[in-house]
Design a protein around this nucleic acid. Sequence first.
DNA 1: GATGAATGAGATTTCATTCAT
DNA 2: AATGAATGAAATCTCATTCAT
Lengths: 190, 190, 190, 190
Amino acid sequence: MDRRRELLDAAARVFARKGFHSSRVGDIAEEAGVAHGLLYHYFRSKEEVLETIFRETWGVLVVETQRIEESGAPLREQLRRLARFYLGSWLVTPEAIRVLVREIGRSPDVGGRVDEIRAVFLGLTRMIDAAKSRGEVRADCDPVLAAWIVYGSLEEILTGWVLGQLPGEAEDVERAVSTVVDVTHAGLAA
Amino acid sequence: MDRRRELLDAAARVFARKGFHSSRVGDIAEEAGVAHGLLYHYFRSKEEVLETIFRETWGVLVVETQRIEESGAPLREQLRRLARFYLGSWLVTPEAIRVLVREIGRSPDVGGRVDEIRAVFLGLTRMIDAAKSRGEVRADCDPVLAAWIVYGSLEEILTGWVLGQLPGEAEDVERAVSTVVDVTHAGLAA
Amino acid sequence: MDRRRELLDAAARVFARKGFHSSRVGDIAEEAGVAHGLLYHYFRSKEEVLETIFRETWGVLVVETQRIEESGAPLREQLRRLARFYLGSWLVTPEAIRVLVREIGRSPDVGGRVDEIRAVFLGLTRMIDAAKSRGEVRADCDPVLAAWIVYGSLEEILTGWVLGQLPGEAEDVERAVSTVVDVTHAGLAA
Amino acid sequence: MDRRRELLDAAARVFARKGFHSSRVGDIAEEAGVAHGLLYHYFRSKEEVLETIFRETWGVLVVETQRIEESGAPLREQLRRLARFYLGSWLVTPEAIRVLVREIGRSPDVGGRVDEIRAVFLGLTRMIDAAKSRGEVRADCDPVLAAWIVYGSLEEILTGWVLGQLPGEAEDVERAVSTVVDVTHAGLAA
DNA sequence: GATGAATGAGATTTCATTCAT
DNA sequence: AATGAATGAAATCTCATTCAT
């Protein structure tokens, strides 16, 4: 009954399947089982649909990253929570994640989104920097590069799932969380 | 005088600037200083141009990965050479890298490209596995996931440069190589 | 208000005027007073428009031929009805006739159309053959060749009208019917 | 060695196979085994190639028709010679014939060719009219329509061969000649 | 004569978006 | 709210023709 919601979910599925540019507005409407004109009651454009998916999905991530940062837990614990949240979302909303991975941050017009993406990176960087101050991280480690490495590890595994190159069942997710945390933490640790 | 080459380079520049989908065939031709019809003398379609850029750029990476694998050097050394080659390509052919980073996995038919990508992953996986046999890597470490983590770290840093979010001058590249090698090797090491 | 119909009729007029290959999709749309994009709402391609005109026009001829065959009337009567229907269509839908006469066998894929054409030929052949059994037709006459001759006579006269080489007013049509029937029937008769 | 000849023959074959509009200049050149640019040494345009084939092939027909007319032979004999020449050419230059049948007289721009086509019709009409004066043809028979009927019979049989719908071996040709002559002569005879 | 790279007008087709119903 | 016919800008691709070599 919430047509807006249905359209968003349908769009996520379609974008996930074919990519944003190759997805027609008609495909989304068909997936949602409505006439394509209806999409324009709820969104100004196809672009806005993507934008909305991005903000909804990414927004949650931003909030959670902040929460983790503010917890002040040890880095290893923070990494675990971040990895669990990020990779775990694959099980909850795989399509939205797929869209994020494929379309966002790679698109030539990241434009308006860049700040929100940066927020996550900054949070992660600050976590690592703080851990460094606490002596949990090697002194010669650049927190900025480290943040990119951690994030890249997470994103690549998501990509593997997205592209069907890595097994992405529930137990695989748990194993991936452990591995990423083990490797990155050991890699950064003093 | 090698018009095919000129068109390919022009296309890389244009794709890098505006993305594949937003680039018109006319843009490529204009960049190359020829009539757009000529592009169809050398390529069957705009898609084939992208495909060619992809194969060319990725091809050298495949070859180099093989070479590194066959060298049988210690894992740390192998990682260093891989990181140096991969990240170093940013200084050599930034446009092609930009195109690769942006377009891989965004077109509806990643299909054709996946095989060559997989070749690199398999090589990396085998390197880590071999190192594990030699006792250089922790026993509880899954080489497949580890390969994805290493690759993800590299690609994310490239993405940072592509998006202008990370400084990507020559000295930054060298530092990035060191950091990635330090972190991933320490993360994997026994 | 039946836009599909309007487009079909407009296309017939345009094709009749300039031939299929020289007609642009825009010409058809303009003739129908709509935007050219609308044509693709109703047809998959310009080719499909021609195909549809062909099938519609030829379809009634197939049906009528069958009806005439099943009537079991004497050959002369059958020839008269066939000629009247076939040549008479020049007065009813001259544009469609023009298109048929001009385009049949000129496009690279006559293939799809050949079956329906054959149906008429087979019907005509069977009529002549049956008449032969009844002793109305000379024993040494090959019904297949005879059918081609009859059909050729009809089509050539239509061609004459299409090309403006033969007068094609209502009374000319009636005279043509008589002449074709007289000549072919006398030619075949025992 | 006569490149011009080779190109003309190649063009006839290609036009016959795919129709004039669907034939590319490159197809003709490839068929002739030369570079496509060479065609423009011998002909001003693709159109001129068709024009040339038309004139060469049709020219012979015009001359022969005249000769037959001037022979003053009985109508039956004239019809036989005409049919033999016209249908017989299928065995000699089937491609050229195919082109004539498919492209000429049906094309929306018969323009310049109309006079030469008319010449054959006029000749045939005069033959029938003369025969009528000699009492060989029914008094109520319109020679103009009769000429179109005769010509249509011949052309349709050629079309049958062209489209592969009628068997067109040497003996079939002879049979077709007899049948057409028998039918049309009996049809016209007093 | 012979080649084929180069041109560019022009045609088809797609598809996001609008809007009357 | 919901529909889908209608629009038209824009993009890809084709191919006859030219011309330097």
